[in-house]
């Protein structure tokens, strides 16, 4: 039982860390602010959630796991709002969005 929980822990924590790595790369790799907001707002949220699920497997079923789940829920509720707030302010401020200049106009 312990071993199975540990295997799940390793899988989820590694997945979460990988998603957070990809999110960090995306923040640097995407061409403009709005696409970077996609990377920061979604990939990081998923990374944190998977990571916390992994820690919950490590912790077993007790009150601390419930609190960890509370953090996951809180991050899931707040991160789209924060991404929206920043993107909206950038739009009002007049930040232009990048577009692929090809035949479509």
């Amino acid at each position: 039982m312990e071993a199975i929980a540990n295997i799940f822990t390793v899988i989820f924590v590694l997945l979460g860390a990988a998603f957070m790595l990809v999110g960090s790369i995306g923040v640097n790799r995407f061409p403009d602010f709005f696409s970077r907001a996609h990377a920061s707002g979604k990939v990081d949220t998923l990374g944190i959630m998977l990571f916390i699920v992994g820690l919950m497997f490590y912790n077993g079923i007790n009150l601390t796991s419930l609190k960890l789940g509370l953090i996951a829920v809180f991050v899931g509720m707040t991160s789209p709002v924060a991404a929206h707030a920043l993107a909206r302010r950038a739009l009002i401020h007049g930040v232009k969005h990048w577009k692929r200049n090809e035949k479509e106009g």
Binding site: M20, G23, S24, V27, D44, I48, V75
Partner: peptide
């Protein structure tokens, strides 16, 4: 903000 999100973990 991205730095802050990773600090939680």
């Amino acid at each position: 903000a991205a730095v802050g999100a990773k600090t939680i973990t």
